[in-house]
Amino acid sequence: MTLHELEVELGPRRYPIRIGRGLLDQPEALAALVTGRHALVVTDGNVAPHYLARVQAALAGKTLQALVLPPGEQEKTLARFTEVMAALAAMGASRDATVVALGGGVVGDLAGFAAACWMRGVRFVQLPTTLLAMVDSSVGGKTAVDLPQGKNLVGAFHQPAAVLADTATLDTLREREFSAGLAEVVKYGAIADAEFFAWLEDNAEALMARNPDALAHAIATSCRHKAGIVARDETEQGERMLLNFGHTFGHAIETEQGYGGLLHGEAVAVGMVLAARLSADLGRAPWSDTARLAALLERFDLPVALPAGLSGEALLGRMKLDKKAVSGRIRLILWAGLGRAEVVPDVPESEILPILEA
Rank of each mutant, 00 (worst) to 15 (best):
K142Q: 07
T143V: 07
T143E: 01
T143F: 01
T143Y: 01
A144V: 09
V145N: 04
V145Q: 05
D146Y: 01
D146H: 14
L147S: 13
L147D: 01
P148R: 15
P148L: 14
P148S: 10
P148Y: 02
P148V: 14
Q149A: 15
Q149I: 14
G150A: 10
G150S: 09
G150V: 08
K151G: 01
K151L: 00
K151F: 01
K151M: 01
K151V: 02
N152W: 02
N152R: 06
N152S: 11
N152Q: 08
L153Y: 07
L153F: 06
L153H: 08
L153E: 09
L153T: 13
L153D: 09
L153W: 01
V154Q: 03
V154N: 03
V154D: 00
V154L: 12
G155F: 06
G155L: 06
G155R: 09
G155E: 05
G155P: 04
G155M: 08
A156N: 14
A156T: 12
A156C: 14
A156E: 11
F157A: 12
F157W: 14
F157S: 07
F157M: 10
F157Y: 13
H158W: 14
Q159M: 07
Q159R: 02
Q159L: 01
Q159V: 00
P160A: 08
P160T: 08
P160R: 09
P160V: 07
P160L: 06
P160E: 04
A162F: 01
A162N: 05
V163R: 12
V163D: 07
V163F: 08
L164I: 15
L164Q: 12
L164H: 08
A165Y: 04
A165H: 13
A165T: 11
D166Q: 05
D166I: 11
D166N: 07
D166H: 08
T167D: 03
T167A: 10
A168N: 12
A168Q: 14
A168T: 13
A168I: 03
A168P: 00
T169H: 01
T169R: 02
L170G: 06
D171E: 15
D171Y: 04
D171P: 00
D171S: 14
D171G: 06
T172N: 02
T172P: 00
L173S: 13
L173V: 12
L173A: 11
L173D: 11
R174K: 12
R174G: 15
E175M: 11
E175L: 13
R176H: 06
R176D: 10
R176K: 15
R176G: 03
E177W: 04
E177M: 06
E177I: 02
E177F: 00
E177T: 09
F178W: 15
F178R: 12
S179F: 00
A180Q: 06
A180K: 07
A180L: 11
A180P: 02
G181Q: 05
G181N: 05
L182T: 04
L182C: 03
L182Q: 03
A183I: 04
A183T: 05
E184C: 13
V185F: 00
V185R: 02
V185G: 03
V185W: 00
V186G: 01
V186N: 03
K187F: 07
K187M: 11
K187A: 12
K187S: 11
K187H: 06
Y188D: 10
G189L: 14
G189A: 15
G189H: 10
G189F: 09
